[in-house]
Design a protein around this nucleic acid. Structure first.
Lengths: 229, 229
DNA sequence: TCAAAAGTGTTCTTGATACACCCATGC
DNA sequence: GCATGGGTGTATCAAGAACACTTTTGA
């Protein structure tokens, strides 16, 4: 059924910048466009917002439909509204960024209908629309946020070693960190629980596994605690 | 001319949380709604986005139309998209926050067409729609941002005293600050220029006037400088 | 001379940085 | 036994926090 309005209305979409961490690198998940415009080019997963769903429902729905991802950390980023950002017509895009435990989801994305691939954030392919700007904004947000909120854990498996955590921070912030200082600080928060397991990687000494005490963090947060790396 | 679309589309608006500082208090500018729904209630200045203007053009246009304010600091806050946030139909609102030098603009707002008034942020009136949530989000953003970006100056006249600056920070952050430490730190950045003037307030010792060296800050920022209060 | 806000330094404590060697394992 | 990454402590330095009195003006 067609719908009629007195004034022309912009179309409304959501686009998601999905970050993952693998191979010591920060990655972003892109899909290959099947339709014009920008057919065959890489773009962010996303699509039109239905009139009866919230923006974050729309973002989650598109993630499932286009990448098979669900139950991910998702946060609104920014709304992009340049007049000619879409060559077809006026389209406003509410951009989101998501953090996924790539270890859990790697297989899924590859087998889904749409052609989806992980790319290094530092050398992405040419992107459709203004999606390069959106990725840049998301990356900047992640770099800022990771310093004072324990969201890095969303990118790691539930059990991880301190070295993995450090390498994650080094990849996100694009810096080198001192091992001893990093461990001292991060353990000082008392939010990492040492498990009774270790992990062997290669032919080196096995590493202690930890998990993040999310429940404990939630309690502390209410009392004005700040996770500041 | 009416416009027809295959799928129903949400309407798109912008809403602005305009902050000012006066009388030692952080204030927010509200307008009284002339039409239903929420007729007679206080609400944020804002309105529909035209199909041929960017989101920030729309926000600036609405500010001029409804409050007479122009050339203000304006930054996107968040996009609110609950399905029933407007009782008439689906309306997505891209919210912005603005900082104004109240000293310059006080008169204007009062004489404009719409009934506009400044309210204390800490005791606002009942607000239309979800505007109370928007104000709360803007306040939280301001509290966060003011710590690491020199945006406080947008709320003060071009010439100000250190005490005024301190009281501004105290009002925004809702804390007391130590006078000597505050002055030491803020002068330490080298971004405040002492003018050759003083200001007399009441029957006390005249205070040194300063202005913010915005140009100097812009240069430093490019080299990774951080204004951290 | 009093009231009111402006202005000014030092000490102490805390957190940040810099830095080098031994350990457990697989090959 | 050697290569690989895991694990550990101390000394220095910089920044933050706490704190009280003198100055200038108008009334």
């Amino acid at each position: 059924m067609p719908h009629t309005y007195q004034y022309p209305r912009a179309a409304l979409t959501v686009d998601c910048v999905v970050f993952g961490f693998d191979d010591g690198e920060l990655k972003v998940l892109l899909i290959e466009r099947a339709l014009e415009p920008f057919k065959g080019q890489w773009a962010l997963p996303g699509g039109f917002v239905r009139v009866d769903e919230t923006l974050d429902d729309a973002a989650r729905r598109e993630l499932v439909e286009e990448t098979g991802l669900k139950n991910v950390f998702l946060e609104q980023l920014y709304t992009f509204g340049e007049v000619y950002r879409d060559p077809r017509e006026r389209v406003i895009s509410v951009a989101w960024y998501a953090l996924v435990k790539l270890s859990d989801h790697k297989a899924k994305a590859a087998t889904d209908a749409a052609n989806a691939e992980w790319f290094s954030v530092s050398k992405p392919p040419r992107l459709a629309f203004d999606h390069a700007d959106i990725v840049a904004a998301a990356h900047a947000r992640l770099q800022g946020k990771v310093r004072y909120q324990p969201i890095g854990f969303e990118l790691l498996p539930a059990k991880f070693t301190l070295s993995e955590l450090q390498h994650l921070y080094e990849a996100i912030l694009a810096t080198k960190l001192d091992k001893r200082n990093f461990r001292k600080k991060v353990l000082g928060f008392g939010l990492l629980l040492a498990l009774k397991e270790t992990r062997m990687a290669g032919r080196s000494r096995p590493a202690q596994l930890f998990r993040f005490a999310a429940d404990k963090y939630e309690k502390l947060k209410k009392h004005g605690f700040n996770f500041e790396l």
